[in-house]
Amino acid sequence: MGYCLEQTGFNQILQEWSKDYFIYAPKRFKDGGGFSDTDRIRYGEIHTVEEIVFDLKSEFSFKEVLLPLSQTLFFFTEEVVKEADPPKKGAVIFLRSCDLHAVKRLDAIYLENGCEDYYYQRLRDKVKFVLLGCQYSFENCFCVDMGTNRTDAYDAYLEIINGKVYVDNHNEAWEALLAARSAATPAVVPACVTRNETCVHIPAGITLEVMGATMWDEYDSRCINCGRCNFVCPTCTCFSMQDIFYTDNGKAGERRRVWASCMVDGFTEVAGGGCYRQKNGQRMRFKVLHKVYDYKKRNGYHMCVGCGRCDDICPEYISFSHSINKLADAIEEVAANGGK
């Protein structure tokens, strides 16, 4: 049902939600940018609707709410193992359509991949999603071609028009709260873009023979294996395990899982000193094909959601969308070389 509220009225709703949930949205971090006197837009806890940034793309995704950068799984001593306590409250996350599609990818990886990840599940069960509409396409976005520019899989949708807050609510538990502070209004339809400046074409019939194309060689010198593209990506899920031993007692500590990246040194190192992908071009090849080939082969839809954050963040101006668009020529090249 649609509702129209004053911003003060919606802030009262946020106060009520905060009793049971931490509330996260893209917000401005003053002087938190990569350069002097620049701000950064990323996810953080909010208390008022005025804190939400609607007109800029967040540089980091919502992912660090569901998948903390460093997450303690359990504590241990010589004789006792204690599971880390779950969060005391759930979370309400304000996010755009592409990111809500990314949640589907995270769920598939952590919950539908042969077994359920217990630590992800206990967070995921307590999360609600509020969709933010896109009035226009941001730089480097290609969500339209990826089919992630619209969704109806939200608990509520929110937009601000002429200082009024408009909400489309799908969550029955929130109906009374919204109705008490607002007037019903005709259907509120989520805003979405239908065209991006950046376009991609993923060729049909990609095979692993494309691994032999020369397009990957250029990334040996261009990529500096910093891993930024993975860390801002809402669908990258790799992590490593770390056992932290307390300095005052070397037999007690905790086990954490920490974000990792297929683009950084050491990710594919194995016992005996072997390394599957030593060159940066090989790592780029793995990342691109994982996003637009093998994930779809298993799940039926592409892993990439077209948010464009990887293009935004790369210090070497490597464009993931351009990499996708080079695949057609790469397929022709390997075909002309007899599949080699």
Rank of each mutant, 00 (worst) to 15 (best):
D168S: 15
D312Y: 08
F54V: 10
P203E: 00
M241I: 15
M1R: 03
H290F: 01
V167R: 13
F22H: 15
F320S: 03
R195A: 15
P26A: 05
S240Y: 09
P234W: 05
D168Y: 07
V127H: 04
Y219H: 13
G32Q: 12
K89A: 10
V130H: 06
L5H: 01
K287N: 02
D220T: 14
Y295K: 10
I52A: 12
Y21N: 12
L132M: 15
L69A: 08
I331K: 15
G250H: 00
D20I: 07
F239N: 05
G300W: 06
I244M: 11
D220V: 09
G308I: 11
R257Y: 02
R181D: 01
P234T: 07
K296R: 13
L67P: 01
T247F: 07
K297L: 09
R28N: 11
Y21W: 09
F142H: 15
D168N: 14
V103A: 04
G281Y: 06
V288A: 14
A173M: 08
Y219V: 02
A153T: 04
D37G: 08
L95T: 04
H170E: 03
V165T: 05
F245W: 10
E218H: 02
S137Y: 05
N280E: 00
C236K: 12
A336F: 14
A173H: 04
L289Q: 03
Q121K: 14
K291P: 02
D312I: 10
P87Q: 15
P190R: 12
R255D: 00
K82S: 14
K297V: 09
G133W: 11
T8H: 04
R298Q: 01
Y166P: 02
G273M: 01
H322D: 12
M211R: 13
P87W: 11
Y136L: 07
C229W: 06
K326G: 00
F142G: 08
D294C: 09
Q135E: 03
E6V: 06
G44A: 13
A330L: 12
H170C: 08
F60S: 09
V92I: 14
C115H: 09
I109K: 05
T148W: 07
A102I: 06
L66E: 02
N169R: 08
V232W: 10
R40T: 10
I109P: 00
H322N: 14
T151S: 12
K19T: 08
G253A: 11
F75I: 02
R28C: 12
P234C: 06
G114Y: 06
Y136H: 06
K340Y: 07
N337H: 13
T237Q: 06
E254N: 08
W174I: 04
G273T: 00
F239P: 07
F138H: 15
G300H: 02
I224C: 11
M215G: 04
A179S: 11
R309Q: 01
V65E: 04
V210E: 14
I224G: 03
D248G: 08
I224E: 00
E172C: 08
T38I: 06
I160C: 00
T48A: 03
K126T: 11
C304R: 03
F138Y: 15
R222M: 07
D168P: 02
G272F: 08
D99R: 01
M1N: 03
F62S: 00
N171Q: 12
N149V: 01
I202Q: 07
G114D: 03
V232T: 14
P26D: 01
